Simulated assay, not measured.
Amino acid sequence: MNSLPFLNPANTLFPPPEQALTDPNGLLAIGGDLSAPRLLSAYYNGIFPWFNDDDPILWWSPDPRAVFSPQAIHISHSLKKTLKKQPWRFTINHAFTEVITACAAPRAKQAGTWITDTIQTAYQALHQLKRAHSLEVWQDNELIGGLYGINVGGVFCGESMFHRRNNASKAAMAALGHHLHQYQYQLIDAQLMNPYLVSLGAKPLSRRDFLHRLHQLRDLKLDTQCWQPQEINIDLHK
């Protein structure tokens, strides 16, 4: 049985993801901090933080992993119908703070959120380093949906999404896939499988295969124009 190690505060090293527990699935380590170097080390090695406000910092690498191919995100008939009736605008990195704040708001039937003030501060610091990014969905000048995540070479590690109009988070994912595909990104990491992600086209990938793909892609040097603040024009209802 694997033990659960405490991270050394003197460095940003993690144990191998293969040492993660099977119950709970993927729990790898405890402690450390949410400094930018530690977070970037985590994502570079297929690890992410996930914990409640009253918990210590917990680090995860689940098996299997939920992933998307950027060009294969499913666009439902209802989303196509919505966009025909009400075209929405999509932007990159226009409102990162507003997006992560909206993602942190408690959802229906949830008592709280894992996107604590500490998490928000940490990812805002990554955004300042141009490593955390947001995609926004607008109806006129109202922010109605969006998502945020981390870029690691040719992989985008998605963290959370939100919507204030039906289908707005689905539209955000579809727009993200189109945008990333244009810039040669190969993989979107969505962390944990759930029915909602399945409906968008997520596929399970074993941890071994995920880490193999990550190691192939994490050092790619792609066009940084991808993450310049911009409006993206994508016709999702063709």
Score class of each variant (00 low, 15 high):
L129W: 03
G154Q: 13
N2F: 04
L200N: 04
Q120D: 02
K81H: 15
V67K: 05
A172T: 09
D63R: 00
N167C: 12
W227H: 06
V137G: 06
L39T: 11
P37S: 03
L180Q: 06
P87H: 08
L197C: 10
F156T: 08
Y44M: 05
D53Q: 11
P16V: 03
I73G: 12
H74F: 13
I30Q: 12
E136N: 05
A132W: 10
E18G: 04
D219Q: 14
R213M: 12
N45H: 15
H94I: 00
H77I: 02
W114Q: 11
A72T: 13
A108D: 12
W138L: 07
S78K: 14
F210H: 13
S61L: 05
C226G: 05
G31M: 09
L176M: 15
D53W: 00
S76C: 08
E142F: 06
F68N: 05
L176Q: 01
D117H: 13
A111M: 12
A105T: 15
S69E: 10
D117F: 00
V155Q: 03
R213P: 00
A132F: 05
I119H: 09
S78F: 05
D117L: 02
D219C: 09
T116M: 06
Q124S: 15
K130Q: 14
H237M: 00
L34V: 03
V137E: 11
C103D: 10
F96D: 03
A36I: 13
S69Q: 10
R164Q: 14
G26Q: 06
K84C: 07
I92S: 05
K130L: 09
N233Q: 11
L28I: 07
Q71E: 15
Q186C: 14
L21P: 12
S76F: 13
Q228N: 08
A108R: 14
L126G: 08
L197E: 02
V152T: 15
W60V: 01
G26K: 05
I100H: 11
Q230W: 05
G158M: 01
H181N: 15
A125W: 01
L135N: 05
D117T: 11
I73W: 03
W60N: 01
K221S: 14
R164C: 08
F68I: 06
G46C: 02
R218L: 09
T22F: 07
E136G: 03
C157W: 03
W138E: 09
R38T: 10
K109F: 07
L27P: 01
N8C: 02
G46M: 02
Y196F: 14
F90P: 03
L7R: 04
V99S: 06
Y123T: 12
L222S: 13
P16H: 13
I232W: 08
W88R: 10
A202D: 13
A95V: 02
E136S: 09
Q120A: 10
R218W: 07
G46N: 11
H163V: 00
N2R: 11
E142G: 00
C157Q: 04
I150E: 09
L58P: 06
L135E: 04
A66C: 04
L222W: 14
R165C: 03
I115Y: 13
N8L: 00
R213A: 15
T97L: 12
C103E: 09
T91Y: 01
Q184M: 07
